[in-house]
Design a protein around this nucleic acid. Structure first.
Lengths: 104, 104
DNA sequence: GCCACTATCTATAAACC
DNA sequence: TGGTTTATAGATAGTGG
């Protein structure tokens, strides 16, 4: 969008990259906020800038989103009950996440 | 965007809400992917539909994003070293997140 | 590195299959 | 219920201060 079309690849010029990051980051967070409100969806967005600064959005609270994410991952993992029904998921989220076990 | 303008408030009609969710979710994930590539930013997006289905995107891996998020939260919390320098953050992320302590 | 402008590009609300 | 089309709203690339 804008005066010219750009290819989706890393922007080499750091100044331009920073400007684009600022613009698109705010656009992304706005879209996230709108989606959560319009569709009553729980969601979270976490973004780190190149300089390590954090920007985020959570419809409820990030804690709630991450807890729910972890629960769904645990279910998908079926670490302790491999025979039980597996909830359908679109993508490959059934990989083990031992680093998150017992964190709550 | 579209034939008509809509207010940013919960869509009451469930069919319409579902359609909008589907469209805007894919748009959001696309934007997230573009931002991460264009600006070389590490990021993660987690979305739950009304029906509880999970959709997400992570530039690297969700594990990496969440670990980094936790680390930054811990720094900001300064739970064990309140006198040390506090990294600047835009928003109110310095609330305690005891539920995440010692999870890694 | 940040705000304003605006020509253009993209996302999407409705309509239609 | 899920794709396709189309007009329009919205996002943003390039530019200037």
């Amino acid at each position: 969008m804008g005066r010219g079309k750009i290819a989706i690849k890393r922007i080499n010029d750091s100044t331009n990259r920073q400007v684009t990051f600022s613009k698109r980051r705010s656009g992304l967070l706005k879209k996230a906020r709108e989606l959560s409100i319009l569709c009553d969806a729980e969601m979270g967005v976490i973004v780190f800038s190149c300089t390590g600064k954090l920007y985020d959005f959570a419809s409820s609270s990030m804690q709630s989103v991450l807890e729910r994410y972890k629960e769904l991952r645990d279910e998908g993992n079926q670490l302790f009950n491999p025979a039980s029904e597996i909830k359908s998921q679109d993508r490959s989220f059934r990989k083990s996440m031992p680093w998150m076990q017992r964190s709550l």
